[in-house]
Amino acid sequence: MFNERLEKFRKELKLRRKEMAAKLEVSESYYSLIESGKRNPSKNFIEKVVLISESPEEYWIYGIKKEDYVNTRDDFKSLKKSLDAILDLGSIKDIDEIFDQDNMPKDSLGKLLIAALKADMKYMIEKRQR
Rank of each mutant, 00 (worst) to 15 (best):
Asn40Ala: 12
Ser36Val: 09
Glu28Ile: 01
Ser36Ala: 15
Lys23Tyr: 06
Arg39Val: 06
Lys14His: 15
Asn44Trp: 00
Ser32Cys: 06
Glu19Asp: 15
Leu15His: 12
Leu24Gln: 09
Glu28Asp: 12
Lys18Tyr: 07
Arg39Pro: 06
Asn44Met: 04
Ser36Gly: 08
Phe45Thr: 00
Leu15Glu: 13
Met20Gly: 02
Lys38Phe: 03
Leu13Cys: 14
Ser42His: 06
Arg16Cys: 08
Pro41His: 11
Glu28Trp: 02
Lys18His: 03
Glu25Asp: 14
Ala22Val: 01
Leu33Val: 05
Leu13Ile: 10
Glu35Ala: 10
Arg16Asn: 13
Lys14Gly: 12
Glu28Lys: 03
Gly37Asp: 14
Gly37Ser: 14
Asn44Arg: 06
Ser29Thr: 02
Asn40Gly: 04
Met20Ile: 11
Leu15Phe: 11
Leu24Pro: 05
Asn40Pro: 01
Arg17Met: 11
Arg17Phe: 00
Tyr31Gln: 08
Ala21Ile: 00
Met20Leu: 06
Lys23Leu: 15
Arg39Trp: 03
Ala21His: 06
Lys18Phe: 03
Ala22Gly: 09
Tyr31Leu: 10
Met20His: 10
Ala21Ser: 03
Tyr31Cys: 01
Ser27Gly: 14
Glu19Trp: 03
Glu19Tyr: 03
Glu19Arg: 05
Lys18Pro: 01
Ser32Tyr: 02
Met20Arg: 07
Ile34Ser: 03
Glu25Val: 02
Leu15Asp: 08
Ile34Ala: 02
Ala21Trp: 08
Lys14Met: 09
Ser29Asn: 12
Ser42Arg: 07
Tyr31Asn: 08
Glu28Pro: 01
Asn44Ser: 10
Arg16Thr: 15
Glu12Asp: 15
Leu24Thr: 07
Leu33Lys: 14
Arg17Asn: 13
Ser36Lys: 13
Lys18Ile: 10
Glu35His: 12
Leu33Arg: 11
Tyr31Ala: 04
Ala22Asn: 08
Ser32Phe: 04
Lys18Met: 07
Lys23Glu: 09
Tyr31Trp: 07
Lys38Ser: 14
Tyr30His: 12
Glu12Ile: 11
Lys14Asp: 14
Ser29Phe: 03
Glu28Ser: 14
Arg39Leu: 11
Asn40Thr: 09
Gly37His: 15
Lys43Arg: 05
Glu28His: 05
Ser29Asp: 07
Glu12Met: 13
Lys43Gly: 06
Arg17Cys: 01
Lys23Phe: 05
Ala21Cys: 04
Glu28Gln: 12
Tyr31Met: 06
Ser29Gln: 09
Leu33Gln: 13
Glu25Met: 07
Ser32Asn: 02
Arg17Ser: 11
Lys38Arg: 14
Lys14Ala: 13
Ser36Glu: 02
Glu19His: 05
Ser29His: 01
Ser32Pro: 00
Asn44Leu: 09
Lys23Arg: 04
Glu35Ser: 07
Ser36Asn: 15
Ser32Met: 05
Arg39Gly: 05
Ser42Glu: 06
Ser36Met: 13
Leu24Glu: 07
Glu35Val: 13
Leu24Asp: 13
Ser42Pro: 03
Asn44Cys: 00
Pro41Cys: 09
Gly37Gln: 14
Ser29Ile: 01
Ser32Thr: 15
Glu28Tyr: 05
Arg16Ala: 07
Asn44Lys: 12
Ile34Arg: 01
Lys23Asp: 02
Lys23Ser: 08
Leu15Tyr: 12
Arg39Asp: 03
Ala22Pro: 01
Gly37Pro: 13
Ser36Thr: 15
Ser27Arg: 00
Lys23Ala: 10
Leu13Lys: 15
Glu25Phe: 04
Lys18Trp: 03
Gly37Ala: 14
